[in-house]
Each structure stands twice: as C-alpha cells, then as structure tokens.
Design a protein around this nucleic acid. Structure first.
Lengths: 309, 309
DNA sequence: TCAACGATAGTCCGAAATGGAATAGCTACT
DNA sequence: AGTAGCTATTCCATTTCGGACTATCGTTGA
C-alpha cells in the first residue's frame, strides 16, 4: 500500500539467489539467466528499495544491513508462492505426489545432479520439491531433509550423508600462509563458519586434540554454498562435509591438508513423519536416496574406523 | 523450484484485490488499473496455476477452492514485500515514522478518504501503513486497528467505531421478498455473514428478542467489503457497522428497515502497545483518529439510548 | 610492472509483456 | 425486448526484459 511500484518476482528470485550464491555470475547460472540480466534486475530492485542491498567486493557480493532485511522477506514471499504451487498441485492431483523438502545446499550440490536418474528409473512416481518453504509448511511434506543429530520427535530419521567433515582450504591460501605441515599450523589461518552450525570448529579441535584453538579470524556465512565459495576464493579454512565438495577436491580447487577431519554427530538426515505410514512410492524414493547417498560416500567406512582409533 | 514461471507481483496484487472486492471492475479501481488489465492479469495467473481461481458469476467473482489457497499465499507474499518496505524504511529513517496497521475494510471505507486531511494538518508527522502484514509483523507497529471486544493483553485499546451495528439490505431485495413491516419478516430473507464475526446474527436475535431465528440461507464472506457488496447486489440481509455504509444509506442503495440494529461489544478499536510510551506524533495521530471517528458517528449516542430502552 | 583472469556495470537491440480504449458477450432484472 | 452491470477479447502503443557484447575495475601471478 505504501509504494506504488512492486518489485518483480524474478527480481526477488535474483535477490534470493544472490544471497545464496554470493556472486552475480553464479546466481545467473542457477537461475538460467545471463550475468547481465541478473545485474540489471538487482539494479532495479535496489533503485526501488532506494538503498543498495549488497556491498560489491572484487570477490562478489555480500548483503548490507538493508539487504539482510530484504532478503529475508524476499524468501518469505517466494516461499509463499512455492507453497501455493505445491498446495494447488496437491489439491488437483487425484493421486498425490510425494512432497519432498530439500535444503538448498543439498539441492545444489547433491540432489539436482542426481535426481534425473530417479525420474528415469521411476517415471510413475511424481515428486514435488520445496526449498524456500517456511517451517510450518515443512510439516506438510512427506519427507524432509534436515541437518542435525537425527533426533526430531515425531519423525523417523535415516542417516543421509555429511557425517564425515573435513578440513579444507584453497591451495593458494595454504601456500601463502606457509603451508600446513602439522596440526598446529592451522592456527595461523582465518576460518570460515556456517552460521547455523557454529560448533563445528570446537568439535574439530576436540576431535583432533587441538588445544585452545582460537582462530586468527572468523568469517560467518548463512549458507554452506557461501562457505564453500569463500573457501575456494581463499578466504579461509573451512570444515565441510566431504560429500558436498567431491568435485572441488578432485579438480584441486580445494585440498584437505594432512587428511584432517572428524566424524560429526550433526549431519544430514532424511526424515519422514513417524506416525504416517510410508506409501509405496515414498518407500521407493527413500530407498533410492539412501542408497545413492551411500554410494557417494564410499570412503566413509574407512574413515570412521580411522577416526575411531 | 517446481514451476519455471513465476507469477508477476501485480498479478498477485490483482488476485488479492479481487478476493477483497469481488469484482474485476472495483478491484481495478482500487489498483488504479483498467478492468481490462485486471481481467488479463487474472487470466495470466490462472493459466500459470493451471486452474481457475474464481468462479465467474454475473454478479462478480467468488474464489474457488484452488483460489482460496492461492489467495492466502498471495497475501503472505505481498505481506512480506510490504514488511520489507516498512522495515527498510524504518532502518533508513533517522526519525522513525509512525507505523500504523489498518484493516482492509477500514482502509477502504474510512481511512483513505479522510487521511489526506491529517497529512495536510500535520505534514511533519510521517505515517506508514501496513495492510497485508502477518500477525507477527503487526506486533512491530506503533498503532494497530483491531476488531474485537477491546481486550488485548499488553495493548491499550480505545474505542474507534463500529459499535452501532444495523440491519441493512438492498431495497429491491426487500421489495421482492414482500417488504419488512415487522421484525418477524426478516425470517424470509437470506442473510450474509462475515466469516470472522459469525456471532453477529445470534447477537442481533438476542438483542431484538427475535426468537429461534434460523435464516433461510446464509452466505459467508471473508471480507466486509464483500458482505457490503453482496448486500448492495441484493443477495441478502446483512448486519454491518453503520459507520461503514453512510454513503450507501444516503444514496438509497441500502436501507435499514425499521431502523433495526443493536450495539455490539465487538467493534473496531485503535490499539497501542501498553508498555511503550506514546511519542508526540503518535499521540497527535491518535487524538485526531479518535476525534474523526466520533464525528463520523454522530447518531450514536441517540441510538445507544434507544437500544438500551 | 604488466598481462591475465574474474568479477560487475553499461549499451544496443529484438522479443515479449503490459496496460488502455473500444468492443463483444453474457446474465439478471424490469 | 431492453437495460444495466458484469467479464472477456481484440488491437495497438508503450514499456520492460533478457541476451550478446563491451567497458572497467581489482586481484593474482610471472
């Protein structure tokens, strides 16, 4: 009612994607747009808001105070549209589809590349995804990916992936800092942290007997994709589930100095409502997901033993 | 993530306005668009959703099941954008504006026509409105219009208007049904009801000693504007705060048979947080609002006495 | 210091969406 | 029938949007 001009929905999606990916180019990729288009959309929205939403750095974008507020509300708006679509679809379908809520990081790094295989294998099973959905809408889903220790009252949780957390950094960063030849060397490096899982570093210090670890600097990010991006950009060391960065490790963009890592109790789980019996389609999907996850973590058993010793 | 195409924001606003006003034409007026544009926007959204959102009647539009769902989410999305705007504005402004949350019906029928006078009188006081905002966002407002009995813990409530509820109907409807020459005649007519205030009719029956009142038919609406519109359209009798329909009574579009009505404990209140002290601007605004409301209800004292007798 | 790289911003242009005016069609009521 | 009050549709001018391309800036590495 206040402003006569409303932002465009693609603008909102651009803002959300920028917050998630941290650069115009990668956000553009994710949205199937060009860098130019995303840049212009951002410019439009900022003109409409009347203030910059992101600080421009040479590495990419980071949200301003105003941006934080706007991003949050943009997500809510997009989430509403998403749940509208899902609910309408559910209402119209005689045979309901499976509603699966995926976390952004899993969606980008694990799910989307693989899911087409499932769709080919089981074309008869319809699956709908939500990503932005608010917590109360998540309750409606038939299966929900969650991050945590596997204990959610009312939900059955199966371990999915991400138990194996490793220390990573960009090779340039590590070279610049003098290299990591012993555990203590990591004290010299800045570290990156995911805002929602702040205990990672203390867990790591405890698991590796690294006493009184006080990082040189801590940068916090709201998304794992940003942590990974920042790590690739050489902004610091990070603790990341190995499964999420197979590609970067293989290509050498990131390295795992000394093979350091630990097994975290906090990881990704596939959860299903405990009171609701699993339908046939959901059972198939669940089996497939869990098996695919096991295959994508081939080293885990070895490492579990190693860390346990 | 599911649909590649997002609805446009004006489309969302169109849907919300259609739900509120019930006809394409009046929604178009409210949005400062033409009927043609609104019709096309609706068509676009429906094509995108894949199902009609409204049933077309010769009287206007009424939401379908799918429509209800979509409307709800559209409101949430618009509300998010609104709160984004308000919060950003609050953040940027050194001297904060007064944030006032108005109910749709009051905004349309009472507030907007009058508020420009206040803006002229006190140009130094900035006021921001919210309409769509969700309940948790309402808590941030400096003043909130509410409907109820004046009892909200933590809020100071001043009576605003709407205590005087009268029976109204379109003259054609009443003529068609044989006229209303005694209280009992209203049993023959269909009645209109506001979804959120379902007790009106039983309160009315009790206040007027109309025993065992079972309406011929009940039509329920989600907005008071729809109730009023339906009453004007001759769809039934309604119980409506007199202050909201002065114009229609004066023009003869609606009549108040036998002067029937009652004083309801549920009405509109202007509420302010009890713990927060009123700033000077807010105090001025509050005084002005309450005084204007008193002036727009000149007959009330007389009627109060009448009904009490 | 210079060149390469990767980042964002800006310009030009064709395509698509949008909104307004006018028109056509429909239904209910007199 | 005829009218009033709706919505839907068509035509058209205008605006917006997105992609290709180019400019520019900062960082990295030889």
């Amino acid at each position: 009612m206040s402003s006569t001009h409303l932002p465009s929905t693609v603008g909102l999606r651009v803002v959300a994607a920028l917050a998630q990916y941290g650069t115009v180019s990668s956000a553009a990729d994710a949205l199937h747009l060009t860098q130019s288009a995303v840049s212009k959309q951002l410019k439009n929205i900022e003109a409409l808001v009347g203030a910059p939403l992101f600080d421009r750095t040479s590495q990419g974008l980071s949200p301003t105070d105003v941006g934080m507020i706007y991003i949050e509300q943009a997500r809510i708006a997009l989430g509403a549209l998403e749940t509208a679509a899902v609910r309408v679809a559910a209402l119209r379908r005689s045979q309901p589809a499976i509603r699966l809520h995926v976390l952004p990081i899993l969606g980008d790094r694990w799910f989307m590349p693989r899911f087409s295989r499932f769709a080919e294998l089981h074309p008869e099973i319809e699956v709908e995804f939500t990503t932005f959905a608010a917590s109360d809408t998540v309750e409606e889903a038939d299966a929900v990916f969650r991050f945590g220790d596997g204990n959610w009252p009312g939900w059955r949780a199966d371990y999915f992936l991400g138990r194996e957390v490793i220390l990573i950094g960009a090779p340039q960063l590590i070279a610049r800092g003098g290299g990591i030849s012993s555990l203590d060397d990591i004290r010299h490096y800045p570290v990156l942290e995911h805002r929602q899982t702040p205990l990672r570093w203390s867990d790591f210090a405890q698991a590796t007997h690294l006493n009184e670890f006080v990082p040189a600097r801590i940068n916090r990010f709201g998304y794992y994709s940003l942590v990974i991006r920042a790590a690739i950009g050489g902004q610091g060391l990070a603790l990341v589930p190995r499964s999420l960065i197979h590609d970067e490790l293989a290509s050498g963009q990131l390295i795992n100095p000394l093979g350091l890592g630990f097994t975290s109790p906090n990881c990704y789980w596939l959860t299903t409502p405990a009171n609701r019996p699993l339908g046939a389609g959901l059972a198939t999907l669940r089996e497939w997901l869990l098996q695919e996850a096991r295959q994508s973590e081939p080293m885990e058993v070895a490492l579990l033993q190693e860390t346990a010793s």
